[in-house]
Design a binder for these strands. Sequence first.
DNA 1: TCTTAGCACTCCCTCGACGAGAGTGCTAAC
DNA 2: GTTAGCACTCTCGTCGAGGGAGTGCTAAGA
Lengths: 335, 335
Amino acid sequence: MHFLKALIERYIRDGQPVGSRTLAKDTGLDLSPATVRNVMADLEDLGLVVSPHTSAGRVPTVLGYRLFVDSLLTIRPLDERDVDALRSEFAGSSDSATLIETASRMLSGVTHLAGVVMLPRHEREVFRQIEFLPLSGTKVLAILVTGEGEVHNRIIVTERAYSPSQLIRASNFLTELFTGRDMREVRQRLVDDLQRTHRHVDQLMLRAVEMAQRVVAAAEHKDDYLMSGQTNLMEFNELTSMDRLKALFQAFTEKREILHLLDRCIEADGIQIFIGDESGYELLGDCSLVTATYRVEDEVLGVLGVIGPTRMDYQRVIPVVDVTARLLAAALRQQ
Amino acid sequence: MHFLKALIERYIRDGQPVGSRTLAKDTGLDLSPATVRNVMADLEDLGLVVSPHTSAGRVPTVLGYRLFVDSLLTIRPLDERDVDALRSEFAGSSDSATLIETASRMLSGVTHLAGVVMLPRHEREVFRQIEFLPLSGTKVLAILVTGEGEVHNRIIVTERAYSPSQLIRASNFLTELFTGRDMREVRQRLVDDLQRTHRHVDQLMLRAVEMAQRVVAAAEHKDDYLMSGQTNLMEFNELTSMDRLKALFQAFTEKREILHLLDRCIEADGIQIFIGDESGYELLGDCSLVTATYRVEDEVLGVLGVIGPTRMDYQRVIPVVDVTARLLAAALRQQ
DNA sequence: TCTTAGCACTCCCTCGACGAGAGTGCTAAC
DNA sequence: GTTAGCACTCTCGTCGAGGGAGTGCTAAGA
């Protein structure tokens, strides 16, 4: 197995099939190429490596990589100075949107791969305040504040005009009633209320419910991610085929499939690695995904990671992803 | 010149250098290849076409395209049914963000190129209301409503804690003072006030000014654009070189250069076309940009268009861009 | 039993040659 | 002004040869 490790490490460095001669030198053990050849033949029988054709060296298979990352890889934690350097990148920005962006850019910058950060879900979103502002005619601007100061706003077109004082009364009423309550409860109560007294369904309230609904949905459904450094992937010769690259980039912009994948990662709390087609999406054929969840106070908020060729430097990438997740969590916590 | 037109139209179709034989057939005039060769030699002397090598056909130069789009192109307006089809796409969405997105996707969808829409600038942003909400400790959430219901929000960390009633008083004070005023005026007044009475500079006010400043800046500076269909560009063989493609995509995500370019287009009110390196950015070397401004009530809000290879179907693209701009403007107006 | 040297073999890659194909420029004739 | 004819040039695909890298197998050595 020592051989497999040496072979993969070499292949990760060069990107070229590794031959018996080079591997013999790499292992450190003083063995002849012939011996190494025997071992490599065994590895091939086990399905851990393949040779692209008869006289090329060997290349790791997905199974080989899997064994490598699961058992052979000794991950040194990142140098404390490097961690500090990364931490300081977060220092500048305070609001959560830019923190996310910093994390994503950091991931892609440090690893030279594509970085991806799923936006944090806010479970247990709490109602804080609602405000209705008259705009022109029958339009009303609704502003809903939840949680730690997330602001949601929406323009509501009502059936009849409301006077400013009516709007203020409505907002006072709702705010007094619901402040501090869980948004899901708020929505439920509003729905119940409307159904009970449904003969005079108030357009304003109806829309307010819709808005609450949407906020709740957005909070439960983690809905989006942010990606950067996609262009880094163009550097790798294994992704040179224009067709594949196009399919990949389209998946990035359509987001749906990638989101599914990230969703699965969020369940496996901690570091998660998909190698090649393990993900089940064949468009990630020659790609791997390394992710880590980030959390605040034992509650998983989301997941972040990198996408790159299967031939990526796992030894370095894994701790980077891990640390970035921790740093982002820390930055979000104190923000 | 009729020859140039035929040549370019042919080249746009096939993407292959056009030889004398094919061109002879294309023109419709019953001329022999030899005659056509003479003409082509003349066109080459004029700098309108070049041949990639001795025995290939001719390919239009930037100058050739320029002449083509300026003088030779007869643009038929879009079929009324097509316009209706496009219009109906806008019908579904009501808020301005999704309208913009629809426009961008429409552009890329119809032309099979990359569509880009600059976000509308709101000149003369008007102050409507400001609200301060206490969060935990010394944190205050400031919500600023401007214009037709744009909501800006920001978390302010103050030096000392404010009581809820103090915050309400502050927001009432500001709202009463500034409602309906131009944001630029608001900012100026706030700055003046602070300087006059600067011994007891109020942290809260200071941050409010900063926020106002930022809103004003964002309103003046058209700050962003939305792009879609970038992957369409991967289809064209003239953009096959990975290096160029990477540079292009990086420019798309960094946005700075593209924004500069769009800025220039916004000035030339109406349709604007940059062919190849006319833009001055060599990374758009083999690309053309076709844009149109969109406006509401004689005020230019922004610009939209498509980016594609110089060898794009101008005859079709130009009316599409034109119509999309009008439709977007109409949709924004009635929204 | 493990290791190693030797050897024949396979496959890729590069290079040069070659011919086909496409297109040109030029000249001379209509 | 237009055209046919012709020699020329350049690209591109194919083919075969040679080198290089690497393999599998066998037989001998520790």
